[in-house]
Design a protein around this nucleic acid. Structure first.
Lengths: 208, 208
DNA sequence: AGCCGTATCAGCCAAAAGGCTGAGGGACCA
DNA sequence: TGGTCCCTCAGCCTTTTGGCTGATACGGCT
């Protein structure tokens, strides 16, 4: 049985080392490359064509994880992409799934969980950490409170303190549209000011 | 020359694995134990008496990193404690130094940086990542940017999403006074909207 | 006594945000 | 084909926020 080739993407060297060490204990898993930025990840996917990409969502300046996932999917080189990150934020989960991630693991996952996710991913199975799964489950029961991908994207930028004008520029939409999205977000979060939205987003969604 | 014994404390297994793998490349550094919680760390310090403790500040439920550092120091068993964490928040740095940490490294530090910090720590030298050092340095140069107690109080409430009116009521001051305080806070934080203030407060000052 | 930092307040004006209604286009699905 | 989301945009009006200037009061330090 041939090995499952893996590309690791994380801006922290220790995390990459740790994953490499963990995966190294499994004969069928082989780390063929590591990237510390989204740009590098994209390049290495082209050159190495790994079976699976394990990706952190939070990365330094430049392309973020979500963007990197989209770009990799656009290459159509068949990678299964696993998100491997610290926070189980609603918005991040929605966006990650929307952009084509096959699974969503938290960094405190047990090794067996990680191995299983990798093996499942190449077979087309979605795997996620229990906390992530339960969040999604709860969301299915209250669909009215689920942010759409676009709303989640906007909320994420909102927590960086941008104004409506800046949000519009960043997302290439008019300020009017920004306000529409915000109104929907407020309704779903149960708040009525952007300050409260930011506060609840960061506290409740685990954003930083 | 005998090895430097190290205890790793981090709630993420991958990070511990990564550190173990990195430190394993150095003949004079020996990881003698790993802990995933503050309580466990305290126990292992007693039983293994390591020369250095490498500690993440953010840990799951229970004792946090700062508390763990204080407790370890209280044992008086002579450990040098190195903080190894993701964020260079002003509040965290101050609190870590205050509770007796010997150094402050960010997780994206280069391996050589980590090794040097460990070796320096056992010799009583303080080491910190450049970004951390520059933050401290900047604070020393610009005492103007330190919030007054009243401002800090207001900022804390601000991060809960309150409006000016609500802030006034909560603090028993007029809305005009609230606005004055806010203006000062904005100036000190280097922002010009409350949204940005909330964002930087939560991210940079470690408020949650 | 004078100075400085902190905390308190007011008024004025411009900019930003929020609430509301309405509306068009595209995707998906029954 | 019609219905339902989602994303997009506009206009109008009210409230909130932010920028500015200036003012009083108290405490501590020199």
């Amino acid at each position: 049985m041939s090995s499952i080739t893996v590309l690791l993407v994380d801006d922290h060297l220790v995390v990459r080392s740790g994953l490499r060490a963990l995966l190294g204990t499994q004969p069928d898993l082989e780390v063929v490359a590591e990237a510390s930025t989204g740009e590098e990840a994209l390049r290495l996917v082209r050159t190495h064509v790994p079976a699976v990409v394990v990706m952190d969502l939070a990365m330094g300046p430049g392309m973020d994880g979500i963007e990197a996932i989209k770009r990799i999917r656009d290459l159509n080189t068949g990678q299964a992409i696993l998100v491997f990150t610290t926070y189980d934020s609603d918005a991040d989960i929605v966006r990650a799934v929307d952009s084509g991630a096959m699974g969503y693991l938290l960094k405190d996952a047990a090794p067996e969980e990680i191995f299983a996710a990798l093996r499942g991913a190449v077979q087309g199975r979605s795997v996620m950490s229990p906390p992530v799964a339960s969040r999604l489950f709860q969301q299915l029961r209250n669909p009215d409170e689920v942010l759409t991908p676009r709303e989640a994207e906007l909320l994420s930028l909102l927590t960086e303190g941008l104004s409506n004008r800046e949000l519009g520029r960043r997302l290439f939409i008019s300020e009017a549209t920004v306000k529409t999205h915000l109104a929907h977000i407020y309704a779903k979060l149960g708040v009525d000011t952007r300050a409260a939205a930011i506060a609840t987003a960061i506290r409740r969604e685990g954003m930083r």
